[in-house]
Amino acid sequence: MNMASIVIFIFTVIYITAGNANTGFVNVQCKTENVGQYGQLSLLECAVKTSQEETDLEIRAVSWKKEGVDEPLLVFHRGGTTKQPGYSFAEPSWNSKNMNVSLHITNTAVEDQGVYTCTVVTDRGVITTETSLKVTAKYSKPTIISEPEKITQSTGGTLVCNSVGGYPKGQIRWFGELNEDWTKSAEMEVKQTKIGLFNLSSKLTLLQGSTYSKYKCAVFNTSGGKEDEATFEVPEGRDASGRLVVIGSLIVLLVVIVILYRRRYRRGH
């Protein structure tokens, strides 16, 4: 008999013996939605609440299960606790007199997102309540590279913005030097990794002769909030070698003017 079968048997027996008790003054209150950060400790808040008339309440059993998972995550019965790795009571020294039955999830993963059921059996009866966990992960600071590596305002090219390791799926948006939105002119690619996180990449093509001096790439989460941004400055169309050519041409022209002037001066005399 596996752990799930044992739990079902235990709670069936307890329900038969305690189910006829009055649960009207005993309730399990859970936070409707809990938010956990990827890789961090998450808390599913649940507590047993009693009326003033109820005293000396005893918790006989507790079970935490996740929707879609057969095996219970945590079970308390007859003074002992059985749990899966990564799950525990939020109270380290929890006992049957402690009304805080909240669940801790260590090293939260994307797969931990979902609906959870907390069942509490007391000497007054059985109460079952649901709560949910939403997992989020912040995207990395965007980075911008150009293709080709050296572009100018006159040559044009492509800007590529990358931001990785976020959850849920976000969006990359582009802005010009006057903060105008260029997102519709870009192409975004989304890839989901094996661990469930998203990598975002967006390409913005700069047309020759119509390129601004500055572009900004920003990453937004699924709620529309901006997490971070990066700026790319496009050099002027005329590079250093071009300026040297122009300066050299002006010097040559000046020399020619001086020579012609001297010749005319000598002829005049």
Score class of each variant (00 low, 15 high):
48 V>Y: 00
183 T>E: 03
170 G>R: 08
262 R>S: 05
74 L>S: 02
28 V>Y: 04
56 D>V: 01
26 V>N: 04
25 F>E: 15
213 S>P: 08
41 L>Q: 15
22 N>Q: 05
170 G>F: 04
257 I>L: 13
189 E>H: 13
15 Y>R: 15
127 I>K: 10
184 K>M: 10
24 G>S: 13
206 L>C: 03
61 A>G: 12
24 G>W: 13
106 T>M: 09
47 A>K: 12
47 A>S: 10
93 S>K: 12
109 A>K: 15
269 H>I: 09
178 L>M: 11
75 V>R: 00
196 G>S: 04
14 I>A: 15
219 V>T: 05
20 N>S: 14
148 P>L: 02
221 N>H: 05
263 R>N: 12
187 E>W: 04
140 S>H: 07
252 V>R: 00
245 V>Y: 14
174 W>Q: 02
3 M>G: 09
98 N>S: 08
62 V>W: 00
3 M>S: 13
68 G>F: 01
175 F>K: 14
30 C>T: 06
114 G>A: 01
122 T>N: 00
72 P>M: 01
147 E>V: 15
72 P>F: 00
93 S>A: 09
53 E>D: 15
115 V>A: 06
117 T>I: 03
79 G>L: 00
143 T>N: 05
232 F>K: 09
92 P>M: 07
88 S>C: 11
265 Y>M: 08
149 E>I: 09
186 A>T: 05
118 C>I: 03
150 K>C: 09
64 W>P: 01
23 T>H: 05
156 G>I: 02
